[in-house]
Amino acid sequence: MTDRAYRAARADALRIEPLGELTALFDRRSMQTHLVVSPMPEILETMGDDASNATALARRLAASFDLESEGDAIPVLAERLAELAAMGLVERA
């Protein structure tokens, strides 16, 4: 599977409100509400303004979170990125 690079929405496009165990994301560009759970908000936050693929993301997440091992995390992160792309929250770079 190719490890595609994505770019997150600009920070001012999203309004992020933690609601207990869920996080509500409002996308001002689509006017859609997304309810997500960890690690989606963390992924978006970590991506910042740069394009990144799952490999780069695993490395950056490992710096601030306790990932079991970067290697195992990569396919999972690739899947999460594809889900975020389907929601329109990240875009292929």
Binding site: R28, G88, E91, R92
Partner: peptide
């Protein structure tokens, strides 16, 4: 204004599907 933003998002999503 809300409805129009929602409708234009469809154009953006079509662009993401077709342009690459």
């Amino acid at each position: 204004k809300v409805a129009q933003t929602q409708a234009l998002w469809e154009a953006e999503m079509a662009r993401r599907a077709l342009a690459p």
